[in-house]
Design a protein around this nucleic acid. Structure first.
Lengths: 331, 331
DNA sequence: TTGAAAGCGCTAACAG
DNA sequence: CTGTTAGCGCTTTCAA
């Protein structure tokens, strides 16, 4: 039925070994032989079976990607970075959504290892100790993309979330605000914890008392951000530091619904800088997260591990910047 | 090094066949034996090798997904639908971006077939005849998700793009508009061609002359949509039919920048109904595309083909609806 | 430069 | 209920 390497060998009057050599670009084949084999391959429509190849060579040229939710634009952007570099290095990607559910993450890890992936890129806001344990004993290299493991046991690619948040807060403080609200995503996420820490520290460093009522935890959605604004209203914030662009748009709408002007009455700094930031009115000043790059660099790092290269530093920190737009008063 | 089925068999004093049976949940194993084997599996940390299994069984339990761009929210939504159903049926997904580049699509198809995927979900605005030819001779089932092949040779899941566009236009016409602009994505896309056809037909059916100057083709981006509004301004449209939510937001901003009010001076109907539609101000009336469902149903259909089930109808059409919001004047 | 042969780890008859 | 035995299609020594 399907044509195998054996069929090609017979048809071309050579051994399977020789066919294998030409298929794999091995130079030890006489040009004439190569040509003959290639011709037969063409005629028979031979297509190498990657599964058999994987079994024999113990390499599948596919990597696993465990991601919270591909329909979330942040992760989609990360995934694109991963995939582009994977393609560049001739790897395919097995992509699975975990919904940040630990059991699912554990099970996905298991499935992927079973499928003999050559490496894994893992994303999650929280890395449980059990997960960490499994990752450490993984026979296959793993890198965390935009995800933090405090023990630094697993390679990872991130930005300085704390530093970025601190700088954003600093800007708001420098603009004279003392009532700055923080509309955050879930604090179960290490990244949000870092932002909170920066929020507090920046305030303290400026001798501004931290008012816990100005801190609100939401589920990252537009709707909850609007609600957050209403909850915060009695506490009269004059500036908002917001965890992502979607929520920032919610904040804008909430604030405007209450009759306040941005940035005249209220300033906002977001944290993501997706294309939404430019589609908002006013356009959002935002910490620019290099999501695509985090994905790309993670995958690149993974290729090094897969090649058995020695890595100098397994924790890579990418640069961020703050994109100033109309939601803040700028110099 | 790694523990194989053979190690387990030896340790448990049974044959590999028996181990294979318990691993695969075959009922023909005495409970005591099963228990013994399970225990050894546990002790040894045995993990079945899916590659070997795939080679022996000729099934990989993985399906290929060829998608234009996962970082585009429309496709990400589709992908999520696909993945969820795949997971439900225990399939994994190999995901690749094609950027709608025909050569890449062709090559991806080849790669996935080489990897022995059990099925493929394919997405693309344009299905070239060469692609169609390759798909037809694919040894593995393929279904098109949200993509059209006029010949109906390949199974597909879509909505009635034409009908949806016609209905949207009808609504605008019923609201009294005679100068309706169409801000479209690329006409190389079959879906956009259908919308254009509906645009014209709806106008004709209402005895309104079609003014080609009111039709603008853009690249689906926010920025080009704003530009489109400016290009259209001299032709004084009083309503806009727009190809997707992102562009609709561009239209809103373009229109407002010109001092017009929505929906008082200008009405807008979008075509997508992503969460952006609710995040826009005014909120967008929009044709609701069931992207997630298209993905899910495609995958479900694929499972049927992979199981060799007989399919009554290979062209499935899902329902759409129009979500009325503030960008149009409603009854 | 080429071929022979031994696996890779598992499934799937088939036999008992 | 369990074991034996062929492969699945390819890579990879090892010889020649």
């Amino acid at each position: 039925m399907t044509v195998t390497i054996y069929d090609v060998a017979r048809e071309a009057n050579v051994s399977m070994a020789t066919v294998s050599r030409v298929v794999n670009g091995n130079q030890n084949v006489k040009p004439a032989t190569r040509k003959k084999v290639l011709k037969v391959i063409e005629e028979l429509g031979y297509r190498p079976n990657a599964v058999a190849r994987g079994l024999a060579s113990k390499k599948t040229t596919t990597v696993g990607v465990i991601i919270p939710d591909i329909s979330n634009s942040m992760y989609a952007e990360l995934a694109r970075g991963i995939e582009d570099i994977a393609t560049m290095y001739r790897y395919n990607i097995i992509l699975s959504n975990s919904d940040q559910n630990e059991n699912k993450e554990l099970q996905l890890l298991e499935t992927m290892l079973g499928k003999q992936v050559d490496g894994i890129v893992f994303m999650s806001d929280v890395i449980s100790s059990e997960l960490l344990y499994e990752m450490k004993r993984s026979p296959t290299p793993i890198v965390l993309a935009g995800s933090i493991d405090d023990s630094n046991a697993i390679a990872s690619v991130n930005i300085d979330y704390y530093g970025a948040a601190y700088e954003a807060m600093k800007k708001l403080i420098d603009n004279g605000h003392t009532r700055i609200a923080f509309v955050s995503g879930l604090f179960s996420s290490k990244v949000n914890k870092d932002k909170l820490k920066a929020y507090r520290q920046a305030l303290e460093d400026a001798s501004i008392e931290v008012d816990e009522q100005l801190v609100i935890e939401c589920d990252n959605s537009y709707d909850e951000a609007i609600e957050a604004v209403n909850t915060l209203a009695p506490h009269k914030p004059t500036a908002y530091f917001v965890s992502n662009d979607e929520m920032s748009i919610g904040v804008i709408h909430g604030v405007e619904a209450n009759g306040q002007k941005i940035p005249e009455d209220v300033e906002i700094i977001s944290y993501e800088n997706s294309k939404l930031a430019r589609m908002a009115r006013p356009m959002l000043t935002s910490v620019a997260l290099p999501l695509y790059d985090i994905g790309a660099v993670s995958m690149r790092l993974l290729t090094k591990y897969m090649n058995g290269e020695e890595i100098e530093e397994n924790q890579v920190i990418l640069p961020y910047r703050i994109e100033e737009r109309a939601s803040t008063k700028n110099a």
